[in-house]
């Protein structure tokens, strides 16, 4: 833990006008009814106010639901999702932005949840693997993963599902190289890549068999 007493004082002496400015703007005087716009308002009000190091209230928009939690500024989006929102689909492996197990979508774009502070994810729509199925129906990518048997231990699977779901939204009919490019930031330790690429193609409507060549072994030789 930092020595919050001494540094807190230093900070206060540093800040002055903006701090005072924000103090003037007290109550959340907003007609907004939706929680997300309240969150956006709150974020604006908080703009030039120092928060932390103690936990602060934040609102995350996860899989279409606004969720209020209290976390320290140092808590990453990944830890917030797993330990505070209790959605453990996003996995922690490297915690350094190098493996993709923690991939979630932020406003539809894949990001590493381990490399983003939870409080910075406020005001954005977050999608985790738990948000892909609708009313008990797997999404086409999930369904294709099952049909192609595209996983072994499954630890990398949520990340791949999100990267591929985002890709198909951008490009409904990618080729194998485009799938590889979109998944370059997701690693599978078990080596299921050929099946993952097949599953992505299948989800996009290509009819694949176990013979569909997605890795040109001749190129590797």
């Amino acid at each position: 833990m930092m020595d919050s007493k001494s540094s807190g004082n230093d900070l206060l002496s540093l800040t002055r006008r903006n701090f005072l400015k924000t103090l003037g703007t007290t109550a959340v005087g907003t007609a907004a009814t939706q929680v997300e716009s309240v969150a956006a308002e709150l974020q604006k009000l908080n703009a030039e106010t120092i928060v932390g190091p103690a936990p602060i209230p934040i609102v995350l928009q996860v899989n279409g639901q606004a969720i209020s939690i209290e976390v320290e500024p140092r808590v990453t989006l990944l830890d917030a999702l797993r330990n505070h929102v209790h959605l453990t689909g996003a996995k922690e492996v490297c915690d350094r932005g190098t493996c993709g197990a923690c991939t979630v979508l932020l406003d539809g774009q894949p990001i590493y949840a381990c490399m983003m502070l939870a409080l910075e994810a406020q005001g954005h729509a977050i999608t985790t693997v738990e948000g892909l199925a609708h009313e008990g129906q797997l999404n086409p990518v999930q369904q294709a993963f099952v049909e192609c048997d595209a996983m072994m231990c499954g630890y990398c699977t949520p990340g791949f599902l999100l990267s591929i779901t985002a890709l198909l939204k951008r490009r409904p009919h990618p080729d194998a190289d485009e799938v590889k490019h979109a998944c370059a930031g997701n690693l599978c330790r078990c080596g299921t890549h050929p099946r993952i690429i097949q599953a992505a193609l299948k989800a996009s409507g290509v009819s694949v068999t176990s013979q569909t060549e997605v890795i040109r072994y001749a190129d590797l030789a």
Binding site: S7, V51, P73, R74
Partner: peptide, 11 residues
């Protein structure tokens, strides 16, 4: 990582 404070600069 150690605990820290956080602020968003607007200018």
């Amino acid at each position: 990582m150690k605990a820290f404070q956080y602020v968003t600069a607007q200018s």
